[in-house]
Design a protein around this nucleic acid. Structure first.
Lengths: 330, 330
DNA sequence: TTGAAAGCGCTAACAC
DNA sequence: GTGTTAGCGCTTTCAA
């Protein structure tokens, strides 16, 4: 036998389908006779009835589905956030449709189109650039959009970010406290908001300490790009410490340091950003700024489920996690 | 103005909605007048029409949506597979609904129920145990189920797995070729099929070489569990090499080796399994059996989209990737 | 408090 | 080759 429909339940309970629908709707508790509700509930239970959300969506125009766009799920920064998103959505009977953009705007646009076709009630986007045409279009079309780990230059969309400013400041002060004065920074690609936030925070922290900064740009937030950037930084300057734009860049630093016959933390200290799952298991264990990935996901989910559209930015605290990749300057 | 419907397009093109539907359906190419097709296509383009998949699903009874269940997205073994799944699904206009089970059967059952409510056309499950009641129920209910990186004891469901047998054999032979005779194995939890496959492969390979085996069980496929198991193994036996059940267990081995004042690979060689993203960046870089995660995802997606239900098992080749964590016995 | 009926957007069976 | 019609499962307005 196929899945029972509401009509089946209604028949079994001896009521009209409309009544059955109401009896199963918790919001209408009190407006339906106790006795009827009970009969319907029992019939539903007995038949193993589960509401067909396709029929419901067609009728209500809402799907309880959120489109989630990440650049690349393989990047260790994202799984934590997605878990947070998914767990929180599910509590409210929402589901997540996942898609990878590979940081390609065209692909992102295409994905958004197919997600819209699926009547997503909103979007959580972790792949937005500082000026993202796709996001802009969604916002002007009146769709619910929440950015995560990203901001737009004009803050027209809601967003959840970590307090990178404080995180970077903590990293710089930590290094300075260990006796480092020549501290470099490896920044990520320019078109991402986190790159700018972190670089500015680095520059300000250095300035506040009366120190000169050394900044090198990496082409992507990946280990190879970090490796390349670290080689440039170490050849060009005499830094004794590096604040990497994220953990993957820090991994690239480790490689560069080794390749130059130096060692970490004896010769060069390194601080990462994110506290990705394996950060504690690297050698040396990576000192890094922890971003509350799971909580960011939870908050993003809450924002996207909220009724009103007024843009709102949530900033969650970061925390410096000191491990073995930073040490006293020799 | 709200999103245009098919009726809007039909009106704009001066045809009946039914005709518009056919004109936009690529399968009916040739059965519709060239001229009509063109007019409808243009109107759709002009209005920015995108099919409403909710309406379509309700009518066709299929949603072009696949439920994807993983134990925990945070585990680095899964993102690669999920990318493969998602990419392949999207080529065929399917989408993936993602959910984490945390290896809890109850949660898994609950998730399956809500995914069924959303009319998923099929399920890809990476969290199944060797004897999984939830999977069994899906199969008997006639739902399309494909397991990935898992098998049932009775092979009543389709599955995509890697050739762990060959992979483990390659690992053992590699170690033996380096002069190791005392080779231990850290196996994962008993209720997963991969645990058994790998342990049996290990035992057979050792036996074929005339060597005695040393097996220790880890409570989970995690670094702490690997750490604990490695300590037990190293205290109980005089092994000079360890074949870990997966990369996370190998990471735990590293920690245990260090803790005992030994070093890898000088004192103890370690081989992992999976070749997770950061395996090459660990110190020492991890020698491991590469599992074709992305391809496994692709194959799983293809199987789940196939029309017929007859269970089918796809085995993809593994490859030993030799890095720095294995060396000649001293 | 419940029944009746309409209709969300789409496609497929049938008629011409 | 195209128009017509019905109906997928659900919720909600309107009546009673």
């Amino acid at each position: 036998m196929p899945r029972p429909t509401l009509a089946d339940v209604a028949r079994a309970a001896g009521v009209h389908p409309g009544t059955a629908s109401r009896a199963l709707n918790p919001d209408l508790r009190g407006r339906i006779a106790e006795e009827t509700t009970k009969r319907v509930r029992e019939a539903a239970e007995r038949l193993g009835y589960v509401v067909d959300s396709v029929g419901r969506s067609l009728r209500t125009g809402r799907s309880r589905t959120i489109g989630v766009l990440v650049p690349d799920l393989t990047n260790p920064a994202f799984p934590g956030m997605i878990r947070g998103i998914e767990d929180e959505l599910r509590v409210h009977d929402y589901a997540a449709l996942l898609a990878n953009t590979d940081n390609e705007v065209e692909r992102e646009a295409e994905l958004v189109a197919t997600l819209k076709a699926r009547q997503c009630d909103g979007f959580i986007i972790a792949s937005a650039m500082r000026d993202d045409p796709v996001v802009r279009e969604l916002v002007t079309a009146g769709d619910k959009v929440v950015l995560i780990n990203r901001l737009l230059d004009d803050t027209t969309a809601s967003a959840v970010v970590s307090d990178d400013q404080s995180g970077i400041a903590a990293a710089v002060h930590h290094l300075h406290g260990l006796g480092h004065n020549a501290i470099g920074h490896i920044a990520g690609p320019r078109d991402l908001s986190i790159t700018r936030t972190r670089r500015v925070a680095y520059a300000q922290s250095m300035k506040a300490l009366g120190l000169r900064g050394y900044v090198v740009l990496a082409e992507a937030y990946t280990a190879p790009a970090g490796h390349d950037a670290a080689l440039r930084l170490l050849k060009r300057s005499r830094v004794t410490a590096i604040v990497a734009g994220n953990d993957m860049l820090a991994v690239g630093c480790f490689k560069a340091i080794e390749q130059l016959g130096l060692s970490c933390p004896e010769d060069i200290s390194v601080v990462g950003f994110n506290d990705m799952p394996l950060a504690a298991h690297l050698r040396p264990a990576l000192t890094t700024v922890r971003m509350p990935q799971y909580d960011m996901g939870v908050q993003a989910a809450r924002l996207v489920m909220k009724a009103d559209l007024s843009p709102e930015t949530v900033v969650l605290p970061t925390e410096l996690v000191v491990r073995a990749s930073t040490g006293h300057v020799e």
